[in-house]
Computed example of a mutant assay.
Amino acid sequence: MIEKIVGGVCVALLTWTGRTVWQNRHHLLLLKLLFVPRRKIRVSVAVLLRLHDEDHYVLFDSPTRPGGYGPPGGVVKYHQTPRGTLEKLGFDPEGRTNDVMKHDLRGFLPAARIPGFARWLHRATGREPATECLRREMIEELGEVGHPELAPLAQAVSFSPLRTVVDGPMKVPGEAYRQIRFIEVYDLLPDRPEAAELRAALLALARTPDSPHVIGATRQDIVRGRSGPHVVLPQSAFLIGDRREREDIQPVR
């Protein structure tokens, strides 16, 4: 009798393990969070653009991190309609007063819900498509760096996926929580004249010393975190690989 009970428990456990592994096969490393189910985790979902000419990567000035430069791109937005799905996962949006940041996929989750959140992201429903986010961010950021005349070119271009990175979980200095970033990196797709024109214009700006809001950085600059007098932000590392070299620089609040 006891042997049958133990056998049944073992079969049930193996079945549950197999199902869990299969459901989370795209993010297996996140399953370790099931061992700390109540831990508070900050999550954010972002898309970055890799635009380069050999060892020369284009970086934009960051308005939230003065003196810092990082790749074009930004945070993906969720659609209002699936808010119920996010609420069921326990998603608590990060409080932001800026309307530009409204509906950003940036907030807090219990650790046990992170694998489910990752599965929801992978389905790519109920949220802004990565390429749509990148195009929107490019148009906004071209204005911020002083070149709104290039925005029509960004409106017309397409992008091709390069890599997807799950960054974390990692401790946030001075905070009680850990954070995970889900990051997609894209290249500019060179299939249209607009793409070639935009690429050439941004590379030219990055090589111009008197263009203060757009710079160029080498791989070595990205690893070291410096390009001449400029700070290269840590997320720039995802342009050249799938892991960061340095801790985050916290934004100005």
Rank of each mutant, 00 (worst) to 15 (best):
E149Y: 00
R96W: 04
S236Q: 08
Q179M: 12
E184F: 08
V75H: 08
V36P: 00
G116V: 02
V21K: 00
E140T: 05
L105N: 07
A154S: 14
I215T: 03
L89V: 03
R246E: 05
G174L: 08
L33P: 02
S44Q: 14
M138G: 04
V11D: 01
Q23N: 09
E175Y: 04
M170V: 11
G84N: 06
P173W: 14
A130R: 06
A12K: 07
H79E: 15
Y78D: 11
L89A: 04
G143F: 06
D55F: 06
V76P: 08
E141N: 01
P148I: 02
V58F: 11
F159P: 01
A237R: 14
I183Y: 04
A156S: 15
D92W: 15
R178G: 07
L33W: 06
I183H: 12
P72N: 03
G84W: 01
H26P: 03
S158T: 13
D61S: 12
V45L: 14
L153G: 11
A195E: 06
E132Q: 15
G7S: 07
E132P: 00
F238G: 02
L189D: 15
R119M: 05
G143E: 13
L31I: 03
E149M: 01
I139F: 05
R96L: 05
E247G: 12
S160C: 09
G7D: 06
F35V: 11
G7Y: 00
E175S: 04
K171G: 01
R113K: 15
D248E: 14
S236P: 08
D221S: 08
N24Q: 07
R83S: 05
D55T: 09
E128R: 04
G225F: 02
P110Y: 12
A130H: 13
A206R: 03
H230C: 06
R243V: 10
V75C: 13
I215M: 06
I41L: 14
T208F: 01
E141K: 11
V223C: 00
T15M: 13
E149D: 09
R39M: 12
L29N: 15
T97P: 04
V172F: 08
T64I: 03
P229M: 07
P209E: 04
V36K: 08
R127T: 09
L34G: 03
G216W: 01
R50S: 10
R192S: 15
E184G: 08
G18M: 04
L202P: 03
P93K: 11
A112V: 14
I2G: 10
S227F: 00
R127A: 06
H27W: 02
G216T: 01
G116I: 00
